[in-house]
Simulated scan of single mutants.
Amino acid sequence: MGEPKLRFKADDGSDFPDWEDKTLGELFHISAGGDIDKSNCAAKQSKDYPYPVYANALVNNGTYGYANYYKIDGDTFTVTGRGYVGHAVARHCMYVPIVRLLVCQPNMDDDVDFFAEQINYTRVFIESTGVPQLTAPQLSKIKVKRPTLPEQRKIADCLSAVDAVIAAQQAEVDAWEQRKKGVMQKLFSQEVRFKADDGSDFPDWNETRLNKLCEYGTNRGTGGNYVGTENMLKDFGGVAVENRESEGTGSLYGPGDTLMSNIRPYLKKVWTADCEGACSTDILVFHPTNVVPDFLHYVIASDSFVAYVMSAAKGSKMPRGDKAHIMQMPVFVPDKDEQLKIADCLSSMDEVIQKSKDELAKWQELKKGLLQQMFV
C-alpha cells in the first residue's frame, strides 16, 4: 500500500505526521469466536437476551441471534474468517462472536471504524484448496497504514457521513421496490382497477393460460447479442449483453420479448429485450402474441409466476422450471386498454426506482473514489 493521495489537515491547519507501516498483529489482539452456548441464546432480542451474537455472515451484519451473556466489550472490529473471507465490521457494543469470526481488539488508542474500512478496501484474500478460511495468525500478518488517532477519526467520520447517505439512499430504493410490489399485488388481484378514458368500467378480466398470450422459444430474428444466466444483473434490473455470436444453442429473441433466468438462484431476473440476439438454454424467452409486451413483462416478474415456476422445478442442486408446465400457467388478463394502463403505471414506478438506484450508484462510486485516494 503506497502513500495516500488524500490527506486531512489538523484542526490548526498543520499537516498530520506521515502514516506508519504496521501489521494488524502489532495493533490489535486478534482472536476467533469459538463455540456458542446455545442454552443461553435465543433467536430474538429481549431484556433477558440483550447481547447480539455475530457469526461469519454478511446479511444483517452477521447477526446470528442473541445471548444473556457477552464475551466482548468495547470498540472492536470483526473480520469474517470463513465463507466471504475478510469482510470487516466495526462493533461498538457488548456481543458474542462465534465460530471462525475473528475479533480485533485495539492494543492502544486506534479507531476501529478506520481500520475496518482499510481492511475492507485491502480485500484480504487467502489461497486455499478447500473452503477458504482466514485464521488469526494469518490476519495478524496483514500490513496496514496507521495515521495518528486524530487523522484516523477525521477519515472515519468522513466515510461514516458518506455511509449514512448511502444507507438512506438504499432505504429509499428498498421503500420504492416495496411500494411497487404492493401495487402489483393490488393490481393483479384486481383489488384496484383502472377506469377507461371516458370514466367507464373496463370489462371483467378473462382467465386464460400463458400459452394463449405468448410463444416460447421459437427461432425468430437474427443477431449476436448473447445473453446467458451469468449476464443477468444482480439487481434484477436487466442484462449485460455480450456482443458475440450464439454458439448454436438456446433460442433467439427480439425486441419486446421477455427473458427470464430459469435457474433457481437467479429467478426473478427479468428483462424485456430492446434488441435482437440469442440466449442460452437456461434463459426462458416469451414472445408476446396476444398481450401487451410490457404487461407480459410484469406477469413474468410477479411473485406468483416465480412460485408457479418453482412448483414444478426439476433438479436437486440447481432446479430449473419445466417449460411445458410454465406455458400452462393460469393467468387472469384484462383487455388491452387496461393492460396498457397497468403497464404504464408500473413502468413509471420503475423509472423512479431506477433514478433512485442511479443516485445510490453515484454515492457508492464517490466512496470508492475516496477509498482509492486514502488507501493507495
Rank of each mutant, 00 (worst) to 15 (best):
F8K: 03
F8P: 03
K9C: 04
K9Y: 12
K9V: 11
A10H: 01
A10G: 04
A10Y: 00
A10N: 07
D12Y: 02
D12S: 11
G13A: 07
S14D: 03
D15M: 05
P17W: 08
D18Y: 11
W19S: 00
W19T: 00
D21H: 11
K22D: 05
K22T: 05
T23E: 08
T23P: 05
L24R: 08
G25T: 00
G25C: 06
L27S: 08
L27C: 08
L27V: 05
L27M: 12
F28M: 08
H29A: 12
S31N: 13
S31R: 11
A32L: 10
G33I: 03
G33Q: 05
I36K: 03
I36T: 04
K38G: 02
C41P: 02
A42V: 07
K44P: 06
Q45G: 12
Q45M: 15
Q45W: 04
S46Y: 13
S46C: 14
S46Q: 13
K47Y: 15
D48V: 09
D48W: 12
Y49E: 13
P50A: 12
Y51I: 01
P52S: 12
Y54I: 09
N56G: 00
N56A: 03
A57M: 09
L58H: 01
V59D: 10
V59E: 14
V59W: 09
G62E: 07
T63R: 11
